[in-house]
Design a protein around this nucleic acid. Structure first.
Lengths: 236, 236
DNA sequence: CGATCGATGATTGCATACAGTATTCTGCAT
DNA sequence: ATGCAGAATACTGTATGCAATCATCGATCG
């Protein structure tokens, strides 16, 4: 078979994106950016008209949003945008810290030189974003860096779980939490260094401190707004 | 209205269970007990007829099965029972150990005397099942005990994540892994004791050993069957 | 004889229609 | 004014129908 010449396309081909997937993406976006507020009743017919599709893809997307924790699905009553409690957020932070600490450890065990180079690349992108002061770019760069570390852990289960937890954390803290800035990226550099040297113990410990600092920072922001009690919960 | 006398029901009232939920439960059961084999193509129309419902609830259940990792959903081609790889199982075991270790620690911080009493109750049930030699009862008792520890961690996120991971692990190893027997339940007793004494460090360490032993046992079983290489992967 | 192309059947994706149930509004009696 | 009863309304849950797409098989051509 000498054929299949000069196929420049990336991916198998341009698959027609299933409508339910587009709906899922659209709704998550609407929830994250606040167009759909916590507790709001999501009426299928309205969403269907809004997005120009029938109720069927809407329902399928709502199923996925439910299992992902974005909406609550009360039988015979419909879907409601999930309202996170402070306890839940504390727990999300705690679990995220646990998973990311582990992924850092495994990343240090598996990372190759090209992997590390890619990490430094993302690190530079983050520092650049930090210099320009573009808050959105900073958050995104941070997510990219952490996401790539989870990839390097070579653990598909981890890489599947972490983003779910992470996105929900970021969604909840988005309105109140300013990016941590320089400190966070200094810590990133230390972690990358540990990964580059293949030192699992050090990478784990550094990531533990990093997530702890991030959590503390978030909790201070929350406390400043709500004047509430201790949110740090069960962090180690 | 003199009627509705002597309402013995618990909960609000007897809610009519949504059909999609029944379908979801039925399909997971069929997958776990092997009626639906890995890789098998799940034709919506067939399932609908089999279960006596229309395609609509089937589709919604398949969405949930997909996000839970039970089936793969290939666009325009339908649903296929997920085929776990040995790598994936190793990763599942690894993540499960991580999460359960943490839940044991938090359980030790939060458990009340009634909670501990309930744990001992479950422990006794497990030992009884062990004595009778009923393999299915043993596996179930084990899941109950671990599940209750996750509840005691007072972390809803953990309690949500662990069962998903745990069920998939048990499903894959079911055909080849004999229950570990007495050793596992001795270790359980030590863990419960640590929780009862409110000793997080000890509970964490004991659970770490316990999950490590369980993983080792499973891996030996696997190796004996497949004659494969090291599966222990990234356990600490 | 092998390979490519086209036709056919099966299956999914989406839309629509109908039935059951929870909520809300209105009217009346207290 | 307040509480309750009843109907009207709105929404979800389920079923069915149709068009688009994919896999399979057979025929034709090199």
């Amino acid at each position: 078979m000498p054929a299949t010449p000069a196929v420049t396309a990336r991916g198998p081909i341009t698959r027609p994106v299933p409508l339910r997937q587009a709906v899922y993406d659209a709704l998550t976006e609407l929830i994250i950016n606040g167009s759909l507020k916590p507790g709001q009743h999501l009426v299928e017919a309205d969403l269907a008209e809004e997005l120009g599709v029938s109720r069927q893809p809407i329902r399928e997307a709502l199923q996925r949003l439910h299992t992902a924790g974005w909406v609550d699905l009360r039988p015979s009553q419909g879907a409601f945008v999930h309202s996170p409690t402070t306890e839940e957020c504390s727990q999300l932070l705690s679990v995220r810290a646990l998973l990311e600490t582990r992924s850092a450890r495994d990343a240090a065990r598996h990372a190759t030189p090209p992997d590390v180079a890619r990490l430094w690349e993302l690190q530079r992108a983050g520092v650049t974003a930090l210099a320009t002061g573009d808050a959105r770019a900073i958050v995104e760069a941070n997510a990219d860096l952490h996401g790539h570390i989870t990839l390097l852990s070579r653990n598909a289960v981890l890489a599947e779980l972490i983003p779910q937890v992470d996105r929900r954390v970021r969604w909840y803290y988005m309105p109140i939490a300013k990016p941590r800035g320089q400190d966070a990226w200094n810590e990133h550099a230390l972690i990358i260094d540990a990964i580059a040297h293949g030192d699992p113990d050090l990478a784990e410990e550094l990531m533990r401190r990093h997530t702890r600092n991030t959590t503390d920072f978030y909790c201070e922001q929350i406390a400043a707004v709500t004047g509430s009690a201790d949110l740090r919960g069960d962090l180690p």
